[in-house]
Write a protein that binds this DNA or RNA. Sequence first.
DNA 1: TTATTAGTCTATCGAATAAGTAGGATAATT
DNA 2: AATTATCCTACTTATTCGATAGACTAATAA
Lengths: 133, 133
Amino acid sequence: MLSKKAQYAIKALSYLSERYEQGPVLIGEIAEKQHIPLKFLERILLDLNKAGVLNSKKGKGGGYFLAGPPESVSLARVIRIVDGPIALLPCVSLNFYQKCDDCDEQSCRLNVVFADVRDAMLSVLENRTLRDI
Amino acid sequence: MLSKKAQYAIKALSYLSERYEQGPVLIGEIAEKQHIPLKFLERILLDLNKAGVLNSKKGKGGGYFLAGPPESVSLARVIRIVDGPIALLPCVSLNFYQKCDDCDEQSCRLNVVFADVRDAMLSVLENRTLRDI
DNA sequence: TTATTAGTCTATCGAATAAGTAGGATAATT
DNA sequence: AATTATCCTACTTATTCGATAGACTAATAA
């Protein structure tokens, strides 16, 4: 399941996509229009900023705006930033790989199957962008 | 991410698959061989029993055994029993559907994308069985 | 019929994670 | 200097996860 954080992130980004190249948008406006708790959204946007998806401007007339065109940001990228791995097992994650405690990866049949699941998920998530939402 | 519960369930079932039609197997034996906490495994097998994947026999000579052949049990079925929904959003779950609090499903573009993700996942998980593991 | 064996069931506990909040620091305008 | 708005850290609260305890029930064997 996606976390609330990820859902909020996608909603916020889709809102900013509609206003791409129309100047900075206030956190407060995004929070209100998309029904997201303000302070929670603050933290989320901060992460997206650090990851380079968003840029910001401080002070009056400031706010957040997309760093690039909506079609350049895949959903896979957003989910990884806020939720971490997309794969169902750490041992088949491309970006957050972690060794299994207890199974030997040569003989384990599980990782083969779940690598296929991961690829199936990514075939959708890597190819859908903010533009599609 | 899959829960430990789901991982344990699959491991236990794969162990029972190797002993299909060879009589009941003790929880204790499964727990020991697959390195699963005994009492935790007890609860998991209980759920799989209730769901009809396993059958059990009490008393001496008792234990658990698969209710049907390994190839009749898909991974999707196992995951749903122990972890619940496979979909990433409740509003696109086939077996555990729940309405979104806050988005109208006519206009929401998210559910379209995540229904595709769900289908991609299921195309693998519905077609791999205990036999493949 | 009694003892033993092994699954059934409920309650609970501690730790980790998720969701949300508070409040000040920092930077850019006016 | 005052104001505006993001940046950052720490915290609180609620929920879920992983695991355990202990009593109950059914089946077998002595």
